[in-house]
Write a protein that binds this DNA or RNA. Structure first.
Lengths: 225, 225
DNA sequence: GCGAACCTTACATTTGCCTTACAGGGTCCG
DNA sequence: CGGACCCTGTAAGGCAAATGTAAGGTTCGC
């Protein structure tokens, strides 16, 4: 689950993004509207958290620009209590929800989850591949009828593979999905991560496996459909 | 047990919420209809206490809005003695009970407990996990046939775990369930609380234990069902 | 068979949780 | 009013799982 968090107040940004990260999200944090546009173009975020009152570009215009290119990305707007018109404008412009500043991080997290749970959203779906099932809401995995004990990375990786079941994922794609751009790993990190995931799945006799395409990427086999 | 208390008179609010807290409830106190709507959206309260005669939004409309989104949240309305029609209107709109102002705090508490004890309510249930039984009405815990002496926090925590037996609870979920939003603890507080609870359960040879999932949360093991 | 890409293992770091000790505040007595 | 408790959050240190890094082995394609 990768989020873009647009907030000009650096300290607030630091704190909040740390909390989001510790809740299992991958977070890219930017401080200007321009950076936000840039980032939103470069990656497919699962949701974008946007603070209104940015210094350079009017916040709402960021929202509009991004929505034009990617209409399906859910937005959550953060706004001051008294800026009621802004809120309305935000919802008109296609924001999916908003939180009123000052807000609790837990509230923000709840809203993000709620937005992701909506129809077409990323959460609340049951992913299936062979005898593997991944409950994206609870973040639990079953292989056959045994629960799988996966670490955070392993689960994120499996989540990614199952969402793109049967399709080929290059290392770059995987890297972008799992790591924020302030934490670039060596290419090997992904190899090791997939190795660990494969091992756990194998040990549980999973009937779907991750295959390698030399020089191209990986894919999760898909004999159902 | 987390309550939302909507009352515009600040002094009264202060006193009453203090009493509620000292009776084992976690209380969020707000003074306007807007805040009430906001809070009710953000968290799952076990019950909402609503004073009619709020300054900004008509009280009943708060009730209606919340009930629309969350039909199961019980409401208790506080109203002046002479506002009989309001009472009727309140009950029509889906309030579950009311108290007449001025009221004794003990009466309010009794009503809250009564509402929570109703079918589908939070109280009056017997929770079981292994040889642990929690009487939610009396707030007592037995392990095997030994009574467990738990503090308020420990009991609330165990209550939470037993209601969500087998499911994973992140620290945030726990924090939201146990702490009002004007008393945010450090993450460590929850670690310490679970540690204390675990120790007591262990000392009493409980057959169900709380397990840790690193970076994800905790869960109460569940071999019955 | 050669090299590149990947797998695998071992190692080091980081992170998150456990644990203990301590301090403030509340409560129940004398 | 004061002291002895208990409850509970904070702080700090240690430990172990998680995860990235590095290094060598293996496999595949050419």
């Amino acid at each position: 689950m990768r989020l873009l968090y647009v907030e000009d107040n650096e300290r607030l940004a630091q704190n909040t993004s740390a909390s989001l990260k510790s809740n299992g999200f991958t977070v890219d944090c930017v401080h200007t509207g321009e950076d936000a546009l840039h980032a939103a173009q470069s990656f497919d975020y699962d949701a974008i958290i946007l603070d209104l009152g940015l210094p350079d570009v009017e916040g709402i215009s960021v929202l509009k620009s991004v929505k034009e290119a990617k209409p399906d990305v859910p937005f959550i707007i953060c706004t001051a209590r008294d800026a009621l018109e802004d809120r309305i404008a935000g919802l008109d412009a296609g924001s999916d929800d908003y939180v009123v500043k000052p807000f609790h991080v837990s509230e923000l997290i709840a809203r993000v989850r709620a937005v992701l749970r909506r129809p077409g959203g990323a959460l609340g779906v049951m992913l299936v591949a062979g005898n593997i099932t991944l409950n994206t809401a609870e973040r639990t995995v079953m292989v056959g009828d045994e629960p799988a004990r996966l670490s955070r990375r392993e689960l994120d990786l499996l989540d990614l593979f199952m969402r793109r079941k049967g399709r080929i994922l290059s290392k770059d794609v995987i890297e972008n999905a799992l790591y924020g751009f302030d934490e670039p790993p060596t290419p090997n990190a992904i190899e090791v991560a997939t190795h660990r995931l494969r091992k756990k799945l194998q040990d549980l006799n999973a009937t779907a496996a991750i295959h390698t395409l030399r020089g191209i990427g990986y894919f999760l086999e898909d004999h159902d459909t």
